[in-house]
Design a protein around this nucleic acid. Structure first.
Length: 291
DNA sequence: AGTTGCACCTGGCTGC
DNA sequence: TGCAGCCAGGTGCAAC
């Protein structure tokens, strides 16, 4: 579910709550996430002060004073919520609720706040990476550049796509090409760049791997859509919530995603948004203005 | 080596 | 109302 803008929204929500506070107690209620929760998870985390909250691709990181890093992923349905310890922000008025279903990990903080990780589908994960091991960690090692960083430009994107025969859609979903994009923002970026998701990936590069005008437009579109989405607090379809329980708003700005049959919003286009399936996943695009 | 399909798991929605 | 079938924001791995 959550792509870069949603994960970044969560990071920004957790930062003021977590950083500088101590994790007094951890409830590991369900260990069978995508990667099993380490047996010594609570032990390694309890008593630690959080120094910083970071993000790499769709992963969240919490740097602990011990040097260990808490590495977290939301999968398709993960979310964090912040509450005053002992309270239940999602409970209906009047009910003194027990933990909600699918609350798998709860961090009780020295500030009196509690941070709860909820993940119905359990595609998320929570691991501990020893000091200095983050970049070498198998889950992060092969991941491409951060799209909002200066290291990501048309040269880099074109080089990563050069000679690839797969579709542009599939290439952009590949986290080794660029970090953090998922199904929504790939569709949205391609529409903004007016490029067809069905186009061969290599067609944004010259034979020597240099960028062409399409690569330049695509990089601009990726950066723009991610910035806009972060500004809106991400997109809330079903699961994504900010840590304060508020919904993101970017779903109201989708130009193609989940808009099959509706009019293309490109000025003067007059086309209709179409849904196709690529690599087993829905793609939304306008065949009229995306070439 | 690059590419594709599948599996992982739960819940919500649609249509009969 | 019930239930089957399909769909969902991700990703690692097996198989071509």
């Amino acid at each position: 579910m959550p792509e870069l803008p949603e994960v970044e929204t969560v990071r920004r929500g957790l930062e003021p709550v977590m950083v500088g506070t101590r994790i007094l107690r951890v409830e590991a209620r369900r260990p069978d996430l995508r990667a099993p929760l380490p047996r010594d998870f609570a032990e390694r985390v309890e008593g630690e002060t959080v120094l910083a909250m970071g993000r790499r691709a769709k992963y969240l990181t919490a740097e602990l004073a011990s040097g260990d890093v808490l590495l977290m992923h939301l999968g398709m349905s993960g979310s964090f919520r912040v509450s005053r310890d002992g309270e239940e922000t999602r409970s209906t008025p009047g009910t003194r609720a027990a933990a909600a279903a699918h609350d798998h990990v709860v961090f009780h903080l020295s500030s009196g706040a509690a941070v709860t990780f909820n993940d119905p589908r359990r595609f998320g994960l929570m691991l501990i990476v020893p000091p200095g091991g983050l970049d070498r960690h198998p889950l992060l090692r092969g991941i491409g550049p951060e799209p909002l960083g200066s290291a990501f430009d048309s040269n880099v994107l074109a080089a990563a796509c050069a000679r690839r025969k797969t579709s542009l859609k599939a290439a952009l979903l590949d986290q080794r090409v660029v970090a953090g994009l998922g199904n929504i923002y790939v569709c949205e970026a391609l529409h903004r760049a007016r490029l067809s998701p069905r186009r061969v990936a290599a067609s944004i590069a010259t034979r020597s791997g240099a960028p062409n005008a399409r690569a330049v437009a695509l990089v601009d579109a990726i950066k723009a859509v991610l910035r806009d989405a972060i500004k809106a607090g991400g997109s809330s379809l079903r699961d994504h919530r900010r840590t304060d329980g508020e919904l993101g708003a970017f779903q109201h700005h989708f130009r193609v995603y989940d808009r099959a049959g509706e009019a293309c919003v490109t000025r003067g286009c007059g086309g209709t948004v179409k849904r196709i399936v690529q690599n087993g996943r829905s793609t939304f695009y306008c065949p009229r203005c995306q070439k």
